[in-house]
């Protein structure tokens, strides 16, 4: 059980690291939800960038930045996208599991 989890975790981390290189369009960025964690937890992007969150857990999550954006409930493999048109720090969290937090820094 433990071995399996660690391997899954390793695969998830590797995937998150590889992502930027696999992207064709420079203005698209991805955040994955794995094991109740936003990965990467902090992401710096340029104004005009679209960020897409994908839930890869077996449990639903949400992506919520108070007053800025709010996803619907994301079931397994569901996605949510938001285009950042203004610079600033966007702190967000999962409203179902509020210990899950992340930030998009828009420059």
């Amino acid at each position: 059980m433990k071995t399996l989890n660690r391997r899954d975790f390793g695969v998830a981390v590797a995937a998150a690291i590889l992502l930027p290189a696999t992207h064709a369009r420079a203005d698209d960025m991805d955040v994955h939800i794995d094991n109740f964690v936003f990965q990467p937890a902090e992401l710096t992007v340029k104004v005009g960038t679209t960020v897409t969150w994908t839930n890869r857990d077996d449990i639903p999550h949400t992506v919520v930045a108070a007053g800025k954006f709010r996803s619907k409930t994301l079931d397994t493999d569901d996605k949510f996208s938001f285009t950042f048109t203004n610079a600033g720090d966007y702190k967000y969290f999962c409203s179902l599991h509020p210990h899950m937090t992340g930030m998009i820094k828009v420059e």
Partner: peptide
């Protein structure tokens, strides 16, 4: 703390 997350545990 026994796993990376509190998600469903496959046994």
């Amino acid at each position: 703390g026994a796993a990376p997350s509190p998600g469903p545990m496959k046994v």
